[in-house]
Simulated assay, not measured.
Amino acid sequence: MSTDYQQAREALGLSLRELRLTAPGGRLTGAQLVERLGGGWTKSKVSKLENGRQTATAEELQAWAEATGQPGAVPGLLAQLRGFESHIRSWRRQLASGHRPVQEAITAEHDRTTVLTIWENVLVPGMLQTADYARHVLTRHANLMQSPRDTEDAVRARIRRQEGLYERGRTYRIMMWEGVLRSLVCPPAVLAAQLDRLSAVVGLDTVELGIVPFSASLKIYPGNGFWVYDDRRVVVEDWHAELWLDDADSVAVYLRVWNTLRESAVYGADAQAVINRARRALHPQ
């Protein structure tokens, strides 16, 4: 967790503590506040929120302001929350209503992007996924996150986003680790069809598809996947959250990582050969 993020969370906690201590009619103890807040609240939770060890939801901030008799504080609290959650978006919150809203949010970023630069080390990027491959990936993620099941809606939203591959004026610089081609995150037959899809993409005018083979000499290790939208934003996925980074220094770092990895990548016929080799490995003679 970044220092900036933690400092912002601690600042929000201080605001919550101030509301408790300045409640109309006199300061509230933690126990008194818990009693006012009702079910689901504990003294431990109040302490964690006030000390920046846990992040409140928008609903919890509203409940807190009302319980302390200061509902007018809600807009300010929500502004603080938005200020740092725009950088770290927890899966718990993002998936509260399922995967489709997440897909729609990222589609909005795609729509305003001319050059999309992608590195993936485990999964085929959503921009190139077949419906069956996407279905398996989204189902497994929903199982892990214990989120609502809206898999078919999410798959449709993801596939619709691929229309951008056929629009003039867009460029997709997509690069992936050879392990992506061999990860059985789906049945072998589904992966085989997905590899066929990648082979077909190699010739698209809008796509620059690179593969970093296992045999390549690497100048940097193939870490987390990330997506760079023009030169304004980076989205990085981790298990607990997505990082949405807007500052120029972070964008520059990720582009530098991508360019370093690119020195080990193969393109065109050589990339096709790596894909074909992975395809044959699924059904050895």
Results as ranks from 00 to 15, higher is better:
Leu165Thr: 03
Arg161Met: 00
Thr206Trp: 13
Leu128His: 01
Gly169Arg: 01
Leu198Lys: 09
Leu123Cys: 11
Asn143Gly: 05
Ser217Lys: 10
Gln162Asp: 07
Asn121Pro: 03
Ala154Tyr: 08
Asp196Ser: 15
Ile174His: 01
Arg140His: 15
Ser217Asp: 08
Ser199Tyr: 09
Leu123Ser: 04
Leu116Tyr: 07
Val155Arg: 00
Asp205Ala: 15
Thr151Glu: 12
Ala134Asp: 06
Ala189Ile: 12
Ile159Gln: 02
Leu184Arg: 14
Val180Ser: 07
Asp205Ser: 14
Gly169Pro: 00
Gly179Asp: 05
Ala200Lys: 06
Leu128Val: 07
Val180Cys: 13
Gly164Asp: 01
Asp132Tyr: 04
Asn143Asp: 13
Val190Leu: 05
Leu144Ser: 12
Met145Trp: 09
Thr171Cys: 03
Arg197Asp: 04
Thr151Gly: 13
Val180Tyr: 00
Leu204Ser: 05
His141Leu: 10
Leu191Gln: 11
Leu116Asp: 05
Thr117Ala: 15
Leu191Cys: 08
Ala142Pro: 00
Asp150Cys: 14
Ile220Val: 14
Ala200Asn: 09
Leu165Trp: 02
Gln146Trp: 01
Pro187His: 14
Arg173Asp: 12
Val185Leu: 12
Ser217Ile: 08
Tyr166Arg: 00
Arg182Ser: 09
Asn143Tyr: 15
Val190Gln: 06
Arg135Lys: 14
Gln194Ala: 09
Gly164Ile: 02
Ser215Glu: 10
Arg170Val: 05
Tyr172Cys: 03
Ala216Gln: 01
Ala154Asp: 04
Ser183Ala: 12
Arg173Trp: 07
Cys186Leu: 06
Val180Leu: 06
Asp205Val: 14
Ile118Gln: 06
Ser147Trp: 09
Glu167His: 01
Gln162Arg: 13
Asp150Val: 13
Ser215Asn: 05
Pro188Gly: 11
Lys219Gly: 05
Leu144Met: 12
Val122Glu: 10
Val185Tyr: 12
Pro187Gln: 11
Tyr166Asn: 03
Thr139Ile: 04
Gly203Pro: 02
Leu138His: 06
Val201Ile: 15
Thr117Glu: 12
Trp177Asn: 12
Ala154Ile: 09
Pro125Met: 00
His141Lys: 13
